[in-house]
């Protein structure tokens, strides 16, 4: 029996179609089709289970990274690349091999990349929040793919780009080494100063030596 689940939000609708593993059960176990409709743009993106898994892997992770504000050392290796810019602009690069729609159907609204292998979708922050919420509701639904449990994890330290780039950190060291080398090269051409023995000069006589010492006065013998 074909089952359908729909997660509707003001700017986004996520439809999941699939089958149940047991006859007559209402639990959706096998996903056959996933359709994401962006309400504000009247755009529908359709794919299979791979598309749904790629969305689940990339979009919530990008939202978490944006929430934390950290910069990654390298872009995550997910099939769907999500870029969240500062000015209310979000772009998703979805490989066409994940989609079921033909290029002719989407030729009006989305823009094709130069290679033509990815579909670029532009969203706003509000549409991104609705997509994340739809995916969260889907993951939390016990009647749809109950084995799918949303997992969260913090990014490890090695995945984060340093706040001060390595080039900036090494710049003072480089400037110091370069100035030391330059000064060493300049002073290399200077002659080594010769050591001169100190001249022995007669010291001028001190006043104490010139003036004769007063003769010791002999005490007068006491008169009787």
């Amino acid at each position: 029996m074909l089952l359908q689940r729909q997660y509707s939000l003001p700017n986004c609708t996520l439809r999941i179609e699939g089958l149940s593993g047991q006859a007559g059960a209402e639990q959706l176990d096998i996903v056959t089709c996933c359709e994401w409709e962006i309400i504000g743009q009247n755009q529908r993106i359709k794919g299979g289970k791979d598309f749904l898994v790629a969305l689940l892997n990339s979009v919530p992770a990008a939202a978490q990274t944006w929430l934390s504000g950290v910069k990654l050392r390298r872009s995550p290796q997910y099939p769907i690349q999500v870029e969240i810019a500062a000015a209310n602009q979000v772009s998703l690069h979805i490989p066409r091999k994940l989609l079921q729609t033909s290029p002719e159907e989407n030729s009006e609204s989305p823009t094709n990349d130069e290679a033509g292998e990815t579909l670029e979708v532009h969203l706003t922050w509000l549409q991104l929040a609705d997509l994340v919420e739809a995916l969260d509701q889907f993951c939390s639904d016990s009647q749809t793919l109950p084995t799918l449990i949303p997992t969260f994890h913090s990014l490890p330290r090695r995945a984060i780009a340093p706040a001060v780039p390595l080039r900036k950190q090494l710049m003072p060291l480089g400037i110091g080494a370069a100035s030391l080398a330059a000064m060493a090269a300049i002073f290399f051409h200077f002659p080594v100063p010769e050591r001169r023995p100190p001249r022995e000069e007669a010291l001028p006589p001190t006043p104490e030596a010139v003036t004769p010492a007063p003769a010791p006065t002999t005490p007068n013998p006491p008169n009787p």
């Binding site: 919530p60 939202a63 978490q64 934390s68 913090s154 990014l155 984060i160």
Partner: peptide, 11 residues
């Protein structure tokens, strides 16, 4: 999501 994002780059 907020809780785990607070510790991004700390673990």
């Amino acid at each position: 999501r907020l809780w785990f994002s607070l510790f991004d780059g700390e673990v």
